[in-house]
């Protein structure tokens, strides 16, 4: 972000609840485009997002949006669209009425046009006159997104927005966010699912234990992840013979044979191993029945990054 004015600036932000530190001295800047806030459950993402929206106060540090403090600054909220992780809606309200109300209290001038456009963008025009209490989880999320974008905000902050969406809705959701970002908006989405962020965000902020563990382009972070020590479980027709061949690979540090005959391979470069292992097995005429990562959970990925 150097050389340009960041849209969002988080500067030395901490938040603690009694003796529990939820967010610790986090600093970053965000500009236009899609930024992913990635971290396991309980990492502090939601607390951080809440401070970025002004819903929660910081214990230390500052958060600014367009250079202005975001906390207790209602005038700024007209430029901000926020979709929290909580999926509660006014169940008695029809979808269209909900979006209309949100547009009205945000002072949208051409109300009817804006409401219809927002609902059409989330592909819910046909269901707009049904009560929100009858919606599926995915529909509720989409109608909430319509209410979030109805006032055409410059900044969108979305906390776990893809929760409850089916695969088709996910694709629609992702395309919509890309389109909105393409118009120059700043979009921040949080997720605990690596692939979700990978598909959407150009820039990633990794939050672990309330700290910023890494930030930057997704490819650079992914490359760093690929180079971490990685355990892979391999089930093959001839495990001991395969173990001998595997040890010759440069991407492998160690191989153990489990009592049940499965191999546990410790790789220093999982991407190379992905390419080399099938080729090696084919050359040696050994059947591969199953290859599975043992520590591919987000928590273990984050654990590695924190320890580096």
């Amino acid at each position: 972000m150097s050389g340009t004015n960041p849209v969002v600036r988080v500067d030395g932000v901490s938040r603690w609840f009694g003796s529990v530190v939820a967010v610790s001295d986090v600093s970053f800047e965000i500009g236009p485009g899609i930024t992913g806030l990635l971290g396991p459950n309980g990492a502090g993402k939601t607390t951080l997002l809440r401070m970025m929206t002004g819903l929660a106060d910081v214990s230390d540090g500052s958060v600014t949006l367009f250079g202005q403090p975001v906390r207790d600054n209602p005038a700024l909220y007209g430029r901000l669209g926020v979709m929290s992780e909580h999926e509660t809606v006014y169940s008695f309200m029809r979808g269209r009425d909900f979006v209309r109300m949100m547009a009205r209290i945000r002072g949208v001038p051409d109300l009817d046009r804006a409401v219809e456009k927002a609902i059409a963008q989330v592909d819910l025009t046909e269901a707009a006159d049904k009560r929100m209490g009858t919606y599926s989880r995915g529909m509720r999320q989409r109608m909430r997104l319509a209410a979030t974008i109805v006032h055409d905000p410059d900044v969108l902050i979305l906390d776990e927005p893809l929760n409850g969406a089916d695969p088709r809705q996910r694709v629609h959701f992702q395309n919509l966010l890309r389109r909105l970002a393409g118009d120059g908006r700043t979009i921040i989405i949080s997720s605990h699912i690596l692939e979700e962020v990978e598909q959407l965000a150009e820039t990633v902020l990794l939050i672990i234990n309330g700290k910023l563990a890494a930030s930057g382009g997704f490819r650079a972070i992914r490359a760093a992840l690929d180079k971490r020590p990685y355990h892979v479980r391999v089930i093959a027709t001839e495990p001991r013979r395969l173990a001998g061949h595997i040890m010759q690979l440069g991407s492998v540090d160690a191989v153990n044979v489990d009592p049940d005959g499965a191999l546990v391979v410790l790789s220093n470069n999982v991407r190379d191993l992905q390419v080399e292992l099938p080729r090696l097995a084919q050359q040696a005429s050994i059947g591969l029945r199953r290859v599975e990562p043992l520590d591919d959970s987000l928590e273990s990925v984050f654990g590695y990054l924190v320890e580096r």
Partner: peptide
């Protein structure tokens, strides 16, 4: 209680 208050407070309306 149901966490819908943010819908109102995140609006440009004076409190």
């Amino acid at each position: 209680e149901d966490r819908t208050l943010a819908n109102l407070t995140l609006s440009p309306l004076p409190r």
